[in-house]
Design a protein around this nucleic acid. Structure first.
Lengths: 224, 224
DNA sequence: GCGCAGCATTGACGAATATCAACGCGCGCC
DNA sequence: GGCGCGCGTTGATATTCGTCAATGCTGCGC
């Protein structure tokens, strides 16, 4: 999942599930905290998340870290470059995965339809990442956090009566490393949103969006 | 082109040219300043740059701009998402392009080999963009500018006697919007590198890297 | 129940970078 | 040749966000 907000698509929109679940392997599971793959590992499988949340990270020599993406249901992770994974990937919560053989990418004739769907997932990822560039390069801290919450609410929020409950299975540090901020800034920004009545922080891992419109406005540079 | 510096790959490495130039259309040309496509246009063709430089940009409602990538020889631009382009793309200088039909992506059977090469280009782009995230999210201004120059020098620098001449066909504002900075900061950073003897600014559109090692060091967080 | 460990929050402060403004330089055009 | 325009550079100042440090909260093991 990247933060890909645009004016005409505020729903976030989970990718539709790839259609044929049993071509390559049975759905599998990975426990919270375990790694699916590491940077440098040879790619044998791609995975589509069917339930749970993954975290993809990349490290810089001096310890700086970037969370590349979170993997929510519908997302496909593990696209290879030169045959290798280029991020670490672990599970934030128990997660269910549909594996697809990497060879499906290289040999479309094995299953043209499935190949096409993986390709579409890759193309969608490129587009989403381009949007995310805009955020990392050009948005302020509060715009970033608001964008993040808005997208998350659209994808996995449980909404009723005009409010929307969102789980945050990741730590503040993960959000910070995803948005190019520090944990302190993320924390302060959330506090500020809480104080202005836009969100309610039920507990560390669960927030409620009380004013979705204000949050969206904030995410686009409005005053909230 | 993204800024994708890693410790073990400092060459940048232009993508190898896709092998069969005449499957879909003859090489074409676009003049400096002209647009190849606009955001929202329906995608009919992908293009591989064979000579020249493209610029891909995305705009935010309030005028903020992000340069998504520069297109240097070897790069493929125009990957669709939902059938549409999601950036504007224009030429910084006269540019030669090899077009490929979009249908090559969707119908691998038309030319399996070429399809595979386009797919590899897309996968390579994902990986490169992930590296670029790290830069936008986690690097300082001088690290960004140094990274940018290092990658450019590796890809299109004319090197001899330990120095490396690099053309910068784009304006300072383009560099800034690509790196998530302002023109002033880019300018100041270049000036500082000039004063410390790392580069020489021959003219606005041409710089010489006098100390490549120092530049690389700067790009990775060293003092230069 | 107590204490500890790991996060999260809050506050004070400082540094990096943006912003605003002035000036300069080069180039094309009249 | 002179003028004006676009872009780049430089300087002064403002602002945002990061850094450092203290405190608080929660869950877990003993």
């Amino acid at each position: 999942m990247y933060v890909t907000l645009s004016t005409d698509d505020q729903t976030g929109g989970a990718a539709p599930s790839i259609s044929r679940p049993c071509v390559c392997a049975r759905e599998t599971q990975i426990r919270a905290g375990n790694y699916l793959f590491y940077e440098g590992d040879e790619v044998s499988w791609l995975y589509q998340v069917t339930a749970g949340v993954l975290r993809q990270t990349r490290l810089l020599e001096n310890g700086r870290r970037q969370v590349i993406a979170f993997g929510y249901p519908g997302d496909v992770v593990g696209f290879p470059a030169n045959g290798c994974h280029h991020t670490d990937c672990d599970a934030l919560v128990d997660t269910r995965l549909q594996p697809y053989r990497k060879s499906l990418l290289e040999h479309p004739e094995k299953d043209v339809e499935l190949h096409g769907e993986l390709l579409q997932a890759a193309l969608g990822e490129i587009s989403a990442m381009q949007d995310h560039f805009m955020m990392l390069g050009r948005k302020s801290a509060s715009e970033r956090v608001a964008s993040f919450l808005t997208v998350l609410a659209g994808r996995v929020g449980r909404c009723h009566d005009g409010v929307c409950k969102v789980d945050l299975p990741m730590r503040r540090a993960d959000i910070a490393d995803f948005l190019g901020l520090t944990t302190e800034t993320v924390s302060r920004t959330l506090t500020q949103m809480r104080k202005s009545g836009i969100i309610k922080i039920e507990n560390i891992h669960s927030i409620v969006v009380l004013k979705p419109a204000a949050l969206t406005s904030l995410s686009q540079g409005g005053k909230g």
